[in-house]
């Protein structure tokens, strides 16, 4: 969990860098597109991880509720 959290943080930072790079007006379209592609891939990954975390959380939550309703 911690590891994937760190990874998420890393990806997130990269994404931020890419956005900053994209804001650079000197970049030509080719480069911009390459960055955008990379960024989109990262964003997808981040969303995926987040969704995974959320799913796990929901699962834990349900099992927690099942247990706490026992008595």
């Amino acid at each position: 969990m911690k590891e994937s959290g760190q990874e998420l943080k890393g990806d997130f930072e990269k994404l931020k860098e890419i956005v900053a790079k994209l804001d650079n007006a000197d970049l030509d379209l080719d480069e911009s597109l390459r960055y955008f592609e990379e960024g989109a891939e990262l964003a997808k990954k981040c969303f995926g991880k987040l969704k995974e975390a959320k799913n796990r959380f929901e699962k834990i939550k349900i099992s927690m509720e099942e247990n706490s309703l026992e008595d």
Partner: peptide, 14 residues
């Protein structure tokens, strides 16, 4: 929100 924001920014920028 942060990730959405960033991808939105990225799209906008491009």
């Amino acid at each position: 929100n942060k990730i959405r924001d960033l991808s939105f920014k990225m799209e906008k920028s491009l």
